[in-house]
Nucleic acid binder design. Structure first.
Lengths: 203, 203
DNA sequence: GTCTATACGACGATAGAC
DNA sequence: GTCTATCGTCGTATAGAC
């Protein structure tokens, strides 16, 4: 390794390509995929829009790579939790915590997923989003049902409805959560689980 | 009133203008404001894009009218609840119910608000969205604090965090709620309040 | 790896006939 | 109230020089 490594040199592990992808992620997350132009991305990177096409096939392939990479990583954690020997309720808690951690570590990708995935999924190229969504629903509902069956969770709940509430409440936090504030993802997960499990009623 | 009143006649209370606005609302809600073209709206209405401008100044003025009308109506209900003599907790429940009713009655407008308001609010024309948002936060947090003070709600909660969870969970339901199914807005509100107040933990 | 230059379709919006 | 026709702008993407 030589004396000075510039930010875009491969030595520090971040290629120019990765840098551009991160810039695009920030803009997609902030103003939406369709609402972000390739000129916006190029401007933010200090280059001209045509130069982006030296690194990427298209704007679509950028968001594709962002979402696929993120989801593949996230599912490694989910799969490990599912395969563990925790109780159903403990697995649910672990998944909630892993999800809030994902918001902390990959805010942009989660935001893009929340805001644009539904629309993107209508194109064949993004068909894997539908598949992953189904997998997520199956994971959650089966754990909720197992928790009810084992007596850990209340039996009078509409599992399908609880699933939607929990799923949405976890992910929608990306709209207001900002890393670097006083709350760590673990803090948010603790508070959220306290509400979800015990309610806000005075006991 | 004469023999036959066509759908676009004023006799049945719905002008052609209102019809076009409803068509636009459906498209804005489904694919987003920016992602909906004036040609999409015109196509769905069976006319040409230029003809829309006989009824509306611009695409922006359409979404402006939709959001403003909806919010004005909704806030009449919120103001009445706030001014009532219910306990803080009962007021919170009433606001949750009124919000789910709004999803049932004005799905498109709620969806547009959820998906596009943040971005639209950056333009001066939509400044009232920011003001209404602030009003909503004040209403919720003051009721939560009053509920804690009166002993109706748990004292160990981070009110600002609970506010965000509740606000988001209520409105995000517009993503999956479909009127005409087995669940009425009141059913959804009941289940949601059961989770929020008592938690999903077993007894 | 970035530039200059440009193709070309889609966009919001307008003018005036019917 | 809708049509025909069109304007100017901005969108993604490409080709080839440096």
């Amino acid at each position: 390794m030589s004396a000075a490594s510039t930010p875009e040199s491969p030595e520090n592990g971040r290629s120019r390509r990765d840098e551009l992808l991160a810039i695009a992620a920030g803009l997609f997350a902030e103003r939406g995929f369709k609402n972000t132009t390739v000129r916006d991305i190029a401007d933010a990177a200090g280059i001209l829009s045509g130069s982006l096409y030296h690194h990427f096939d298209s704007k679509e392939s950028m968001v594709d790579e962002l979402l696929d990479t993120f989801q593949t990583e996230l599912w490694k954690k989910y799969d490990a939790i599912e395969a563990s020997d925790l109780t159903p309720k403990a697995k649910l808690e672990a998944i909630v915590r892993a999800s809030f951690e994902a918001i902390g570590e990959h805010r942009d990708e989660v935001a893009i997923f929340q805001n644009d995935a539904l629309h993107l999924a209508t194109f064949e190229r993004f068909g894997y989003l539908i598949e992953r969504n189904r997998k997520f629903r199956t994971l959650w509902t089966s754990l909720l049902e197992a928790g009810v069956a084992s007596g850990e969770l209340r039996a009078d709940l509409d599992v399908a409805l609880v699933y939607r509430f929990v799923r949405d409440t976890v992910w929608v936090a990306v709209r207001w959560y900002r890393p670097g504030g006083t709350l760590t993802p673990a803090d948010v997960a603790d508070q959220y689980l306290a509400i979800l499990l015990e309610g806000i009623n005075h006991g």
